[in-house]
Amino acid sequence: MSEVKLLEVDKLITSFDTERGMLRAVDQVSFSIPQGKTVGIVGESGCGKSVTAMSIVHLLPQPSGKILGGEIRFKGEDLIHASDKRMRQVRGGEIGVIFQEPMSALNPVHRIGRQVAEVFRIHKDMSKKDAWDAATEMLALLRIPAPEKRMMDYPHHLSGGMRQRVVIAIALACHPSLLIADEPTTALDVTVQAQILGLLESLQNDIGMSVMLITHDLGVIAESCDEVVVMYAGRVVESAPVDELFGNPLHAYTQALLRSIPTLETPPKSVLPTIPGLVAGLGEHTHGCRFCQRMDRKSSMTRERPKFKEVQPGHWLEICKECSNL
């Protein structure tokens, strides 16, 4: 592949140390994010999307969360073994992070202005006054009306959409080269979601950053992403450019996921295709194909892990006799 990779995640293994032993939440996940592109990570709750993101920026719950294997290379630098000091520079500096719930991401007892200006104080070593001005500018860039006034507000004064803009302003303050957005619009109305996604796209073009967009909404994926990574039960089952994935999905799980959403074209009250069974809990996973496990197929009982292969240029697939439709 000739494209410049900004972030490469290779066979990442992340486990949690619990009473029931080490539970593997992320099981050899590999993907990469090219310069300036948006990569979507899609999957059901508990499939390891967020844990993957948290592993990249060392924000795993401590002391239980541990990275047990694999590699994370950001601009060629090994992040897994980076020091805490270095990670503090990376987070908020070169990698911006947005979380799903904008209320809990902001500190309720500090003014908006202080929370945005803080980023400039820490990462850019600016004077108080300069940082304040830069923060005001940042809010204006995110099209927050009357930014000078908003700087003096507390988070509870703002609506969900406005709060999420503030969180984005903080994440983008230092013009990061990578933005990790974990369900950035899930708690928002569709109209506000459209505003926020539009805003992210135009800012992305302006500062040429890459985005890792974690969502369970296939509509958002289709509209905002260049490439898609489909995760199931801690593993990547398929990854491909967005047109290819939606036009030619090869894994049974991807196909089932795409079929199960009602669209504006689905006949009203018709029976929607569903995925039978449940995602197996952590600790109950098989070595074999985990979607087969959900489907109660014998093939999931094998000791052998299905291979993850590039079946067409740029289209990666977990090879399973039952689940991959080649």
Partner: peptide, 24 residues
């Protein structure tokens, strides 16, 4: 109309002009 145009469609081939509402 604005509400409908804001719904993301799970088909990357569909390219629409969105009606973006300002504010809340």
């Amino acid at each position: 109309k604005a509400l409908l145009s804001a719904v993301p469609i799970a088909d990357p081939k569909v390219k629409r002009k969105k009606i973006l509402l300002e504010g809340d």
